[in-house]
């Protein structure tokens, strides 16, 4: 079942096209990542899904209904964790979460249970009575998340929740999102960090300049590029003969030599490294170090857009 869908959505800010016939959908139970550089249209897409932003063309549906800012039933079923810290800075952690949970649940006992769960979920048990403004950056991010998920939404949208967050809080946040997904929530996650998208998402939508450049699982996306695994070897005795012997080994599509280092390209990636090592041993070709690089999302992004994601 589809949780949300955007079809041929066009959104213009005067002459700037933020979404250019953008299409994508999310099925129930998925974690879908919107991956793209800053300004690629990720937040615009989320704001259209939330009904906050009017768009010029196309259709946006959530839970099978056209998005409307007045659809309170839809609002009860979704959660939103914005990129900007959005809570009441003067209030305590507990008061903030209680207020947001109270917008969905009027029963005090149930609401307090939600608050306890949310605090435990983001690991803020020790900070319940702290004023939000006094928390560190990472803890504020966690509170920002707790306010968006306390009501146990069916569908949660995270807009770059780990920007400017320390590694510990980042891991905590990513593990929490996985846990939410295991508990049944469908997740839309925007990021410009490749590793987060790779680690977290079942499917990834690559965005650039408001367009859906490609979407699929990590493996499907990698298959879109020329799939090779690069093995870097520092040879003990590099020579033309040795390189020629390596070139004839199974799975090797190319060998190049660079200052005593051999760069061996294997295809398909992830299948021939052990065979290569056995062959090197058999032919008594010795090396002092080795490392292997599998194709990454950045290669995919580079191929699709002509620029690296980190640019």
């Amino acid at each position: 079942m589809k949780v949300c869908a955007m079809r041929e959505v066009v959104k213009r800010y005067k002459k700037v096209v933020a979404l250019d016939h953008f299409n994508f959908e999310i099925k129930e139970g998925e974690i879908v990542g919107l991956l793209g550089p800053n300004g690629s249209g990720k937040s615009t897409a989320i704001n259209c899904l939330l009904g906050l932003l009017a768009f010029d063309e196309g259709e946006v549906e959530v839970f099978g209904r056209r998005v409307s800012p007045d659809d309170m039933d839809m609002k009860r079923r979704i959660g939103f964790v914005p990129q900007d810290l959005s809570f009441f800075a003067e209030l305590s952690v507990i008061d903030n979460i209680r207020y947001f949970a109270g917008l969905y649940e009027q029963n005090n006992a149930k609401r307090d249970e939600m608050v306890r769960e949310a605090i435990a979920f983001v690991g803020l048990e020790k900070y319940g009575k702290f004023a939000a403004k006094k928390l560190s950056g990472g803890l504020k991010r966690r509170l920002n998340i707790a306010c968006g998920i306390a009501h146990r939404p069916e569908f949660v949208m995270f807009d770059e929740p780990t920007v400017a967050v320390d590694a510990q809080s980042r891991n905590f946040i990513l593990e929490g999102i996985k846990e939410m997904n295991r508990n049944g929530s469908t997740v839309l996650y925007t990021t410009h960090y490749l590793d987060e998208a790779q680690e977290l998402c079942d499917r990834i939508v690559i965005m650039d300049e408001g367009r859906n450049m490609a979407s699929g699982t990590l493996e499907e996306l990698i298959d879109l590029v020329d799939p090779t695994e690069a093995v870097h070897l520092v040879l003990s005795e590099p020579s033309e003969t040795v390189l020629k012997m390596i070139a004839d080994m199974p799975g090797v599509v190319d060998v190049a030599e660079d200052d005593g280092k051999a760069v061996i390209l294997l295809t398909p990636p992830g299948h021939h490294l052990s065979t290569l090592l056995e062959e090197l041993k058999k032919h008594e070709i010795y090396y002092s170090s080795l490392h292997s690089e599998l194709p990454s999302l950045n290669d995919v992004f580079l191929k699709l857009t002509g620029k690296a994601l980190r640019d």
Partner: peptide, 11 residues
Amino acid sequence: SPLAARLSTTP
């Protein structure tokens, strides 16, 4: 404000 945007997504 971002807070208003967030509150607008709630019922």
